[in-house]
């Protein structure tokens, strides 16, 4: 079971003439099969937080790690853009990130490709797929290494609304089946309410303002009254914060 631990995390970027505080004393925890959304306006450091957890960036001070039984957890990462190797086939892209290239892992890769409905594309080049399809491959890729935890950085923000809705449903189905710990960054409050158990709201300047638990049962139908109410409530909290923030 993966454990997310963020403790007094600080991240400061030194520019040519000014310093920018991306994260300001952020602390939270998440464990087990929780879907956590990080929500906030642009410039609130949510992507930076994800990058630090993934090891792509370093914290200025404080601690941020994802552990699984004491050791560093294996992570899957879905980016805003699919980040597929354009010169390798879809299946080769899936195999690229596997810990080894044996038959067992190959079957696993094919299995997850099928779960997102893209088995037919396994020999295709990424350039032959639409943006939505490429992103689905990216999601399948992240799941296929059977990680301890998943990090997702606004994976649907570059897609049109209809494709985004489809992929959101697919992601949810995948998550329900595998029940991993997920850290999901988004600027879309409604998306967060539909998908997550927990919503963490960051304000501009990188401070953590709210740590909410969403206690609605799955699946969450957008037309359900309780879901709509929760959305309004969270949105209100979100907007209140914006007024207070500098």
């Amino acid at each position: 079971m993966a454990q997310v631990e963020v403790s007094h995390l600080h991240k400061v970027f030194e520019g040519e003439s000014r310093t920018v505080t991306a994260l300001d004393d952020v602390s939270f925890e998440a464990s087990g099969h929780t879907f956590v959304s990080l929500v906030g306006p642009s410039g609130c450091g949510k992507s930076t937080l994800l990058n630090i957890l993934a090891g792509v960036e370093h914290a200025t001070s404080g601690r941020a790690e994802i552990l699984d039984g004491g050791r560093r957890a294996r992570l899957g990462y879905v980016f805003q853009s699919p980040r597929l190797l354009p010169w390798r086939t879809v299946l080769d892209n899936m195999m690229f990130v596997q810990p080894d290239q044996g038959a067992e892992h190959r079957e696993r890769a094919e299995h997850y490709l099928e779960m997102v409905g893209l088995s037919d594309t396994r020999k295709a080049w990424p350039g032959q797929l639409s943006g939505g399809m490429q992103q689905r491959v990216g999601i399948a890729r992240a799941f296929s290494i059977e990680p301890d935890a998943l990090l997702m950085d606004e994976p649907f923000s570059h897609l049109d609304a209809i494709t985004a809705r489809t992929l959101r449903r697919e992601l949810h189905a995948l998550w329900m089946e595998t029940r991993k710990t997920v850290l999901f960054v988004t600027h879309d409050v409604f998306e967060a309410v539909e998908l997550s158990d927990r919503i963490i709201i960051l304000a501009k300047g990188g401070s953590l303002r709210q740590n909410l638990t969403i206690d609605l049962p799955y699946p969450r139908d957008p037309s359900d009254d309780r879901v709509a109410l929760t959305k309004t409530e969270v949105l209100r909290q979100f907007e209140d914060l914006d007024l207070v923030a500098s």
């Binding site: 992570l75 990462y77 853009s81 980040r83 390798r88 690229f96 990130v97 810990p99 290494i145």
Partner: peptide
């Protein structure tokens, strides 16, 4: 850089990174 970051995050070995990226 973005592809290299992706490979880094997925802990792909150095020879595989050189060969594939």
């Amino acid at each position: 850089r973005d592809l290299l970051d992706m490979a880094h995050v997925y802990e792909v070995s150095r020879p595989a990174r050189v060969r594939n990226v």
